[in-house]
Structures are given as C-alpha cells and as structure tokens.
C-alpha cells in the first residue's frame, strides 16, 4: 500500500466528508427510485398498450414496440448525454438531477415495459376468455383478473432492476449530477488517496445494493408462495 494513506485516514473520516458522501448516496437512491417508479408506470402503460387489439391503436402499438426494442440497445451514457445536450438546445436551465432522472426514466421505461409484458404474458389466455364471455371490458379484465395474477411475476425482476439502476446511475456523474460516484471524484480531486475515496464509494454502493439484493431474494420467495397459506 502506498505510503501516506494510513496517515490520511483520520483526515478523511470526518463528519463533513461522511455527510457529503451520504447525501450523495441519497441522490443515487433517489435517482434509481424515480427511474423505477416512472419506469413501472410508463413501461406498464406501454406493455398494456401492446396487448390491445383493433386498428385504431395499431400505430401506437408499433411505436411502443419500437421504443422498447430501441432504447434497450442504447448505452445509458449515450442516452444521458443526449438528454443533457437536448435540454440545453431549448435554452432552459434544467437542473442536473432532472436531466439524470429523465435519462434513467427513458431507459427504465423500456426495460420495465419488457418485464411487465412478460408478467402479463404469464397469465393464461383462458383467463382473458373467461372474462370476455362475462362481458368484462379490456380494462376490467386487466384490473380484476390479469394484474392481480401478474404482479407476483413482475415484482422480483422489477426489484432487481431497481438495484441494477442503483449501480448504473454512477454514469450520471459524467454530466455533473452530484450522486455517489461524483462525490467520490470530488473528494479524489481534493487530494485524498483514491484508495480511500473510491474505496469508500464502493463500500457505500455495496451497503445499499447488497441488503436490497437479499431483500429481493426474500421477496421472490414470499410472492411465489401460493396465496392461501
């Protein structure tokens, strides 16, 4: 280990630095949470749209499919930069966090649309038939029959996705969003040893991601259990 690191530790472990990193970590969490919430709503809407029938909605269905297929093939960094530069074009002064949140949401919508689509597809077609012959409308079928059966299939991968974005939002540091990785870079620039700064950042990511991963695994077991026990 390079000399000087040990001596730096007391100067590094201050309340000020700790607060700075924790606040940044909360932005990482917030960014990921915003992405997941927007993603499940907008992605869910796209997945539902893709289940509709009839000519009237065909163009929208096509757009939905295109969106899902394309945005899962663009790196997050590129989406982020596109949003960053595109918002500058209009000349508005958009807060950096909002730029990060929009970029995360654009990508998460595509991924979660796929997850919800798989969830809807896991419900047997005969459930749709049974509802149809009793005059359920499309939305009634979804609300009363399909979604109550699909959510336990959707939840585990959606939660996994939330954890994935906890890590992937590290890239938002590149446009200046003060999340955890950016905070690490800042401390590094202030002259602290990279072992300490990036080491601390890695540990904080781990401290957020690992418990959530374990929770996700328990969640999976929990929702997979039959309703009646």
């Amino acid at each position: 280990m390079p000399h000087g690191v040990i001596e730096q530790i007391p100067r590094f472990l201050t309340w000020y630095n700790a607060a700075f990193l924790l606040r940044a970590a909360s932005f990482t969490l917030a960014l990921s949470a915003v992405g997941s919430v927007v993603g499940i709503l907008a992605g869910g809407a796209i997945a539902v749209l893709r289940r509709t029938r009839g000519w009237a909605l065909a163009p929208l269905r096509g757009l939905g499919t295109l969106y899902v297929e394309l945005f899962r093939r663009i790196p997050f960094l590129v989406t982020l930069l596109l949003v960053f530069y595109a918002t500058q074009l209009g000349g508005y002064d958009m807060p950096l966090f909002a730029i990060g949140a929009i970029a995360v949401s654009l990508i998460s919508t595509a991924y979660l649309a796929e997850i919800v689509r798989a969830g809807l597809a896991s419900v047997h077609p005969n459930q749709w038939h049974s509802a149809a012959v009793a005059n359920f409308s499309f939305m009634q079928t979804l609300r009363l029959v399909v979604i109550p059966q699909a959510w336990s299939v959707v939840l585990p991968p959606a939660f996994g996705f939330f954890i994935m974005f906890l890590k992937d939002t590290a890239l938002a540091s590149q446009v200046g969003v003060v999340e955890l990785t950016y905070a690490g870079k800042t401390l590094n620039n202030r002259g602290f040893a990279p072992v300490l700064t990036f080491g601390a950042v890695l540990l904080l990511y781990f401290a957020m991601s690992y418990p959530l991963t374990l929770l996700g695994r328990r969640l999976e077991v929990l929702v997979a259990r039959p309703r009646h026990r």
Partner: peptide, 23 residues
C-alpha cells in the same frame, strides 16, 4: 461475486485506474 455484482462497474474501473498507478 457478491462484491463485484453489488458495486458499479464504473467505480470499479475508477478504483483500478487511480489506485494501480499508486501501487
């Protein structure tokens, strides 16, 4: 496995990028 799958790849590379030269 647990460490590398629960931390961001970007920060892992930052760590290598800045720490290895010091070593």
């Amino acid at each position: 496995v647990v460490f590398f799958t629960n931390t961001p790849q970007l920060v892992q590379i930052y760590f290598l990028f800045f720490v290895l030269p010091e070593a």
